[in-house]
């Protein structure tokens, strides 16, 4: 498996080293700022599809192919469905015979969470010269798996090539997933329940350990704990707004706690 507990122990030191050396060697980085350097990092990004998160997402697309068959979509309709969670809602509402506007509202609403996810990745992805249009185009590819991938891997890539690296990963992954849905359609309804259950469980347990392992700042771990408790809790109390409440509320409280912690730490250190 190519996913190590990145950002933990020795890995974290390496990441720091690379970051500092990247800053010192800004001139050589710029000198290689031709087509070749970008293409190289694009290919390295493509290789990311053999990482654990990408492989797990691919299995969940197999599950999606089975779901599409279940709700009566044709193969080509299923292939057109890309970003998994939002479109799952859409397909579900349509299958339930709900109004089109309600369907659209549900998808729009479920995507609000993309805004903080994209905003938190953009400072890691860009440099001063990155055109905004490139970031706008790449933002389409940010979903949960690619967010996890980006927050863990981008820091190991020289800053001028991070957009190329992410593009290589995300475009390849999206294309492969589209192919998986097309090829898997009609094939994968045959999963035994225990295997299907295990495949479903892969995604959450991978996120739990990899996000914890790659958390560089304590604020991420505090937010992790708030999110994991508040998500199901708000799902019971306020199902329509659960993710937003857990995210904005839990994240803000985590930030406040961390801010107090940092202040105390700084005061204690003096």
């Amino acid at each position: 498996m190519s996913i190590e507990p990145a950002g933990h122990g020795i890995e974290a030191d390496n990441a720091l080293d690379r970051r500092f050396s990247g800053r010192n060697e800004a001139v050589p980085d710029e000198a290689h700022h031709d087509g070749r350097g970008r293409f190289y990092w694009f290919l390295i990004g493509m290789r990311g599809i053999f990482s654990l998160p990408a492989l797990i997402l691919m299995t969940s697309y197999l599950g999606f192919a089975a779901f599409a068959l279940d709700v009566g979509l044709t193969r080509s309709e299923a292939v057109f469905i890309w970003a998994l969670p939002a479109q799952m809602i859409l397909v579900g509402t349509m299958a339930g015979g709900a109004h089109l506007a309600a369907s659209f509202a549900a998808v729009t609403f479920s995507s609000i969470r993309m805004m903080p996810m994209v905003a938190s990745v953009v400072p890691d992805m860009r440099n001063d010269k990155t055109p905004t249009i490139v970031l706008l185009a790449l933002s389409h590819f940010i979903a949960i798996t690619s967010w996890v991938f980006a927050t863990q891997r981008l820091r190991h890539v020289p800053r001028p090539y991070r957009t190329s690296y992410f593009a290589g990963f995300a475009i390849t992954l999206t294309s492969i997933n589209t192919a998986i849905v097309g090829i898997g359609y009609g094939v994968v309804s045959a999963f035994p329940p225990v295997v299907a259950g295990a495949l479903f469980m892969l995604t959450p347990v991978y996120f739990i350990s990899s996000i914890w392992a790659s958390a560089r700042q304590p604020v991420v771990k505090i937010a992790f704990l708030f999110g994991i408790v508040l998500g199901p809790l708000f799902a019971v109390i306020e199902p329509q707004f659960d993710i937003l409440y857990a995210g904005i509320g839990g994240g803000t409280v985590a930030y406040a706690i961390d801010r107090v912690r940092r202040r105390r730490h700084a005061a204690g250190g003096v």
């Binding site: 967010w147 959450p204 996120f207 996000i211 604020v219 991420v220 937010a223």
Partner: peptide, 13 residues
Amino acid sequence: RAVATALVMAVTA
């Protein structure tokens, strides 16, 4: 970052 992490973990949970 805190909000994004809490969001992702809420979805995960």
